[in-house]
Write a protein that binds this DNA or RNA. Structure first.
Lengths: 348, 348
DNA sequence: CCGGCGGGCTAATACGTATTAGCATCGACG
DNA sequence: CGTCGATGCTAATACGTATTAGCCCGCCGG
């Protein structure tokens, strides 16, 4: 290991400028308090030496001495490699990077977090959270226990996606699934649908819950409507279920399931939306090839990324300036898969 | 700003375990040299306290005291995620992240680097390079002056893509464009082509140079062949040039140019590869819609990402173990756009 | 001439860890 | 009984910066 050349420090600058290290620090931080005064010529001399040497303060030492690092941690829960989840994370990262750049922060990806029981863990033997001033949590399912721990430790963080309380309110920037789904339900009702069926994934994540809640809340209101529920599995089985149920429209939580359902229907000679309408409740999270323009909504992922950084900076500097829990509206997408129910079937 | 709760330090652990801070550090680092000995029961006591408190060493202090941080910096000359270059960087990042996880390093994206004159700068007023142990440089064109500076400062880094010397050899992991292009030239010659034309971008980047070099070196060898050269611009102009030249095959540096050229040819009633063959010299770097399977090669981007981390770790710990300049082979892609020249045209 | 006061700077310390020289203890050995 | 070598630990210091108490000096007012 070659001895690395000792780098230029404030002491070196101080020696060259004929002042003390403290003075260098004061000049560097442009301190102009009443308490602290530096003569203009001294200041200039120091600045000149700094410019000549190309000195830049060691961010590590700086962080140790003061409090902040201008580093935003990014923790991704789910295995990052399968290209599938990459497409899921990408829009978030886009927004995060953009806003981080704007506020002059670097991004630290906690790739060193080890995988235990198939998921990454924030807390482990040698967790390095403190490298960052705070942390953005990304992942479809986030461990409640870890959120508890974060809250207890008073570590600044923000979740992307709504989260239930965990030993205190969880700061988050989520998508307002409940409202988006409710809007779609209303739309279906207006088009004449009376038998709506929700096809979920059997997941307990908050994002699933919110969709489900939005669906049933809106469907309940229309007393005349009937709702069913199914779990995505084998597409044909699911389709059977829908038909038996007399459903005229399926609200499908997962995009890939919707695609599978549509092809299953087509294989059986059923037209979409002629014989069966299909509504999707989220963007594709894995690349599913399809030419169909599904009716559904778009999750403002990029904006969620941006705002998560915004909220995090608020949490970090304690200015609870912005609301620390935000739900962003989803944009409805008017596709080709929500029609009017076949009158022949719609015998109620 | 709420006073953050002082976090647990080694001193706290020491007090609780009834030992000194030094002992805690020694236990933590599992030091078992001949010089340093800790009684097993003491060690256990300390470890128990650590487990109970959930203590984890502050990586910042650790870095200040010792030398390394287990952080790999990633500097992208263009924004890392934004959509334009997104498809370009993504595979690299994928490989980088994978390998970083394997060696237990975190990744630091230098998003705080300001943009000057349209490109990001490594060195600026308040550069934060020292946060990381070393740095991976990504970008189509990398400023030679900055490479000089990195070399001069002895800062460990590695470029993705071959780079010319800059005040010393530049560690890199690149793609062997020269060989890949030469192979394609040979293939074209075997198929009977005698008039080959290179369509470049007029760029001076090493990646462009290498392709060009590979082309002319291989084409020269076949004394019977003639080569031409054109610069991509308006596709029709370029096509005119090719036809005037009597070229039977175009070697096109940029993927998008190849796509444009193909449609221009088709608009004029020319068949590809019937009347004109087109070879591409790189993957699409921006999403260009096309159904055509171009003949060309694939750049091992992901592998380049992985190996760049590997090389960087070598540079950092000074074990010049691996070669610090690597060129990875590209995989030839046998597409549909390289045929045999029309005999009518091939009058030599 | 002395006290006070403000400007301009420095000495000292803290941040939390890693490292090293060296102290204390104890058993063995001469 | 003194010496020596091992063993087990601690005190002290370094890393590079930020911060604060306070020193020194010159000037002004009395």
């Amino acid at each position: 290991m070659a001895a690395p050349p000792r780098r230029v420090t404030q002491r070196d600058i101080a020696r060259l400028a004929g002042v003390s290290q403290a003075t260098v620090s004061l000049v560097l931080n442009n301190r102009t308090d009443a308490e602290v005064r530096i003569a203009p010529e001294t200041r200039d001399r120091v600045l000149r030496v700094i410019a000549e040497t190309g000195y830049a303060a060691d961010p590590v030492a700086r962080r140790l001495a003061s409090r902040f690092n201008r580093i935003i941690g990014v923790f991704t829960y789910e295995p990052a490699f399968p290209s599938g989840s990459r497409d899921f994370f990408h829009p978030f990262l886009l927004g995060i990077e953009e806003y981080a750049e704007r506020v002059g922060c670097d991004l630290l990806l906690f790739t060193s977090a080890p995988v235990v029981d198939g998921r990454r863990r924030v807390f482990h033997q040698d967790n390095r959270l403190r490298l960052a001033d705070g942390c953005i949590l990304l992942g479809r399912e986030i461990d409640g226990a870890e959120l508890h721990r974060l809250n207890r430790d008073g570590y600044p963080y923000v979740a992307v996606g709504r989260r239930d309380d965990a030993g205190g309110p969880v700061p988050y920037v989520g998508a307002d699934y409940a409202t988006a789904v409710a809007r779609l339900v209303e739309l279906a009702l207006r088009r004449g649908h009376r038998r709506l069926t929700y096809v979920g994934m059997g997941m307990t994540a908050e994002s699933s819950e919110d969709r489900r809640r939005g669906f049933f809340a809106a469907a309940m209101i229309a007393e005349s409507a009937r709702q069913g529920s199914a779990t995505a599995g084998e597409a044909d089985t699911c389709l059977d279920h829908l038909l038996t149920d007399g459903a005229t429209v399926a609200f499908v939580e997962d995009f890939a399931t919707a695609v599978a359902l549509e092809s299953a229907a087509r294989r059986r000679g059923l037209a979409v939306p002629g014989d069966l309408s299909i509504v999707t409740l989220g963007d594709p999270t894995s690349p599913v090839p399809t030419d169909i323009a599904f009716t559904g909504f778009r999750i403002p992922r990029e904006e969620m990324g941006r705002q998560s950084v915004e909220v995090l900076t608020g949490v970090i500097d304690g200015s609870a300036a912005g609301l620390q829990q935000r739900l962003l509206p989803c944009e409805l997408v008017e596709g080709d898969t929500l029609g009017t129910p076949d009158p022949a079937v719609d015998r109620r």
